[in-house]
């Protein structure tokens, strides 16, 4: 409360005479001073980040320990740092092959999703056509379908086409939730581009494909980046479908981890190292798109 402030303002008329009381009598009191909870903000943020980072730190910590140290002693940092766990992963093809598999189908999925979503998003953002609203909503309902529902039918469908244990099978399966999302995000970004730009280009004699690639795509480049980020993210983190549709040749790293821990007992160190290595691609991607994250997470429609 800034009683002093009230006083000094009201005394202004006759400097030196306190008239704060009369101001109060009229019912006007200086407002409660707007608290600036900056320190509180820092505290909340710091605690939250510690909460986020502790489990990750623990994983990193474990990945540099020997199994003996993990199971026998409890230490906040590696007493006897070792790179053995990482060496195991980088020398065993069944381990590092998993990373290659994961990255392969994630990239395939991202490319497919964006390629088909671009024209569709353009249609939704620019034209009215028969059934457009229903179609858009129906697309979004696919995002609401529990992957568990699709596990079995996908397995049968892809078996019938002989696609089981291929990268493309996982990439296509992940389109189930990534394509609707991609259409949604891109539509948001495209609606932000004024339609006059399209019309001007057509008047200037651009054909649709040329206009789309040369003029329109550069305009929504950040939108495409954000979409790619989301496709990458959801394909990279998904496991249920990826595991169901693969056996050996295309098995994702995440699934190999699960198997290893149940099969070979408790090689905690290797497990932790593998986990750490799955975090790195995500961290790299985030770093590149960090300036678009805020807008991106609002899907371009704040």
């Amino acid at each position: 409360m800034s009683t002093g402030a009230t006083k000094s303002i009201d005394t202004g008329r006759q400097p030196g005479t306190p008239t704060a009381a009369s101001a109060k009598a009229r019912g006007f009191v200086a407002p409660p001073k707007l608290r600036r909870p900056r320190h509180l903000g820092w505290l909340v943020m710091t605690l939250y980040l510690i909460f986020l980072l502790l489990p990750i730190y623990w994983l990193v910590n474990m990945s540099f320990k020997t199994n003996v140290e993990i199971t026998n002693t409890f230490s906040l940092w590696p007493n006897d740092p070792t790179l053995r766990n990482y060496r195991v992963i980088f020398t065993d093809p069944s381990w590092y092959g998993g990373y290659i598999n994961s990255i392969t189908y994630v990239v395939m999925n991202t490319v497919i999703s964006i390629a088909v979503a671009l024209p569709a998003a353009y249609a939704f953002s620019r034209y009215r056509f028969l059934g457009d609203k229903h179609l858009f909503f129906w697309l979004l309902t696919n995002r609401m379908a529990p992957p568990a529902v699709f596990a079995l039918p996908f397995f049968q469908l892809y078996s019938a086409f002989g696609l089981i244990d291929t990268h493309i099978a996982v990439a296509l399966a992940h389109c189930l939730f990534n394509v609707p999302l991609a259409v949604w995000i891109l539509e948001g970004f495209m609606s932000g581009v004024p339609r006059e730009i399209d019309e001007t280009a057509y008047i200037d004699g651009y054909s649709f494909p040329r206009f789309f690639v040369k003029i329109f795509m550069p305009l929504i480049a950040s939108g495409i980046g954000v979409t790619a980020f989301f496709c990458f993210m959801f394909s990279w983190v998904e496991l249920l479908l990826a595991r169901t549709l693969t056996t050996t040749a295309a098995k994702p790293i995440a699934a190999i981890m699960t198997r290893t821990v149940s099969a070979s007992g408790l090689d905690w160190g290797v497990l932790a190292a593998a986990g750490v290595l799955t975090i790195i691609p995500g961290a790299l991607v985030i770093w590149f798109v960090r300036n678009y994250i805020a807008k991106g997470f609002a899907l371009g429609r704040v």
């Binding site: 939250y48 986020l52 983190v237 790293i253 932790a272 985030i286």
Partner: peptide
């Protein structure tokens, strides 16, 4: 803040499980 906060979102879900299983 943005990068650190987004980090858990980019971790494969079973690794999330593993992290907490261990933690």
């Amino acid at each position: 803040c943005l990068v650190l906060m987004a980090l858990p979102l980019l971790i494969p879900w079973n690794v999330v499980g593993t992290i907490w299983q261990v933690f």
